[in-house]
Design a binder for these strands. Structure first.
Lengths: 338, 338
DNA sequence: TGACTGTGTCGAAGCGCTTCGACGATGGGC
DNA sequence: GCCCATCGTCGAAGCGCTTCGACACAGTCA
């Protein structure tokens, strides 16, 4: 192990000088800096993380708590995790991976041990029991998702209500008069994750505003479930020409089923998905969609958490709702009333 | 911050005694242990991670390096990561998430800073440049995947060669005489990740052994690409009745295309997939498949790395090839020669 | 020119833990 | 009843770093 003391010896300066070269907290002459940097380079020195954490009371680690199993689409979780990790490195931070099932004990452990400087949490429930612990331990944190009471907490999320509305507006503007929302599974609405309910709210509000008849059905995402949901919708409202899908797993079955039943997309039926761009682009036809800005959420979360760490906890209570971006592709076209 | 010293004061013992209660490295009387544990409980004490790492030269952190973008199916990566994290906690370890794009510099940084005690690496290339660095820095490590030269390294992977063979054997035993492997995208074979090539080797060997005509086509996984691949196969070998698919993205398109072309699965055509059980179960019909044992690979990796850390690096060079498990479901049935 | 203000560097203390050696108390073997 | 091993506990050193105060030196200003 190369230590700071060895670097100092090799550079012919004192250990504290080396430390100041590294931290830039005091001015150092160019000559000294060069000598020290040369020594660091030639010895392949890396500061000992534990020693640094002990002395400075900063671990330069961000804890990221992700769901073990959840309603969220796995690739989205992954993309957020990768974005967090990548962005964190830009700030010289590393990322500690925790699972949501560690729950409040996990939060306490991290806060108590100084292992991480802050937390980023995903899969936030409306009444998430980790939140009171976060408040109590005064852990700097950013939530990806929106709890019932976000007061005093930094949150980042897609504006799902606006998302639901945007899908309806798009279909309404194309002249569709009967539309359906194929949503997440039953469990998702019950389990208080909020986002599905918020989407539904926006969907219904916009439908009312635009004078569009709207139905909503939850769907488990399997082929069978999707088939059942679709046939019930068409039975009830045979004139349905527009679908909004908020369930990545249901997209492929739905397209397949529409094709089988002879309804051409987009000629007869329009489909708008709420899904990552990748899914929209891989489908056939390529889907008009509101994308899940996973990467942006991850990056935003890191930036906000770093802001809390660097410039005191002012602005910690900021909620960032990312506005939906609807991209028109090949799955939506003019409807009957156009 | 509650410190060990405060616990000691509250319990009426010396700090070293508290430390020994925690580490169990010296015997402690029941009475003292109880007092100390009570103090820990009542104060909500958690040892400071940095201090512990500094003094003991052990961070109790495992670094997990995962691909940012890769040939691997994202849910599999995720499942491995979750399994690693969960299993690591069983050993009292935490997991630090690194991305593969940190490359050799990342490995050096972790090894040099003592941030992690060991590394678990995914997405191993045949000639992975991180491997020499691992050897040079003498970092305890386990690779998930198989490099060209695994000498002296611990590796865990599915036995893809046996997997390819198992699929062929299953189809051959059902009486299929013309089979096709729909594989990963071109890039995967070129990019030296090994697993796709190993599967192909096993596929071809077993086909030869069983006197079965076999073709192989790589496939990008989009609907269009799958359609192209399928039509070319059927043009060349119209008698093809068995498909092996090693590309999760191609599964749904393939099933959809077979249905459209009037080939019933499994009555006319059998399909065997190499994919996670979840994908096989969600498809319709449910697929006969060799599952990707993501969770087991993750758990195994942690166990092996812990063995290296605990009982010296003997056995560090062990390669664990997980034997394939083929589960018969509803997508394979007797073929023409049966 | 003397008092002052910066600049650049150093020494030492201390972060919270582990661990080694020491030591008093106990108990078994003879 | 004495010696020695064992058990349970303590004190102190030290892990590698950051950071505070001190200080030498060179300019700057009246």
């Amino acid at each position: 192990m190369v230590t700071l003391a060895e670097v100092a010896r090799q550079a012919g300066v004192s250990p504290s000088t080396v430390s100041y070269v590294l931290s830039r907290k005091r001015s150092i002459s160019d000559e000294t800096r060069r000598k020290v940097e040369a020594a660091i380079e030639s010895l392949g020195y890396h500061p000992h993380a534990g020693a640094r954490a002990l002395a400075s009371n900063r671990s330069n680690i961000l804890a990221l708590m992700i769901p073990l199993r959840s309603d969220m689409y796995v690739p989205v979780i992954m993309e957020i995790a990768m974005a967090v990790t990548t962005e964190a490195r830009e700030f010289g931070q590393d990322v500690l991976l925790l699972t949501k099932d560690e729950g409040t004990a996990g939060v306490r452990r991290i806060a108590g041990s100084g292992l991480a400087d802050a937390m980023i949490m995903m899969d936030i429930e409306l009444e998430d029991d980790r939140i009171p612990v976060l408040r109590e331990t005064e852990t700097p944190a950013v939530l990806i998702g929106l709890p019932a009471d976000p007061a005093g907490l930094a949150c980042v999320d897609l504006d799902f209500e606006a998302t639901g509305a945007a899908c309806v507006e798009h279909l309404a503007s194309l002249g569709h008069r009967d539309i359906a929302l194929i949503g997440e599974g039953e469990g998702v609405y019950k389990r208080n994750t909020g986002f599905a309910a918020r989407t539904l709210t926006g969907f219904q509000r916009a439908a009312a505003e635009h004078g569009v008849r709207a139905v909503h059905r939850s769907c488990e995402g399997t082929y069978e479930s999707t088939a059942g949901v679709l046939s019930r919708i068409l039975e009830e409202r045979p004139g349905t020409t527009g679908f909004v899908v908020q369930n990545e797993a249901a997209i492929a079955p739905l397209l397949s089923l529409l094709r089988l039943s002879g309804r051409a997309v987009p000629e007869d039926t329009s489909v708008v998905a709420i899904c990552p761009d990748q899914v929209a682009l891989q489908s056939s036809p390529r889907l008009t969609s509101v994308s899940i800005p996973a990467e942006e959420m991850g990056r935003q979360a890191v930036r906000q958490v770093m802001a809390q760490l660097d410039h005191a906890p002012e602005g910690a209570s900021q909620t960032t709702m990312i506005p939906p971006a609807l991209t028109v592709r090949d799955s939506s076209a003019r409807g009957p009333a156009a």
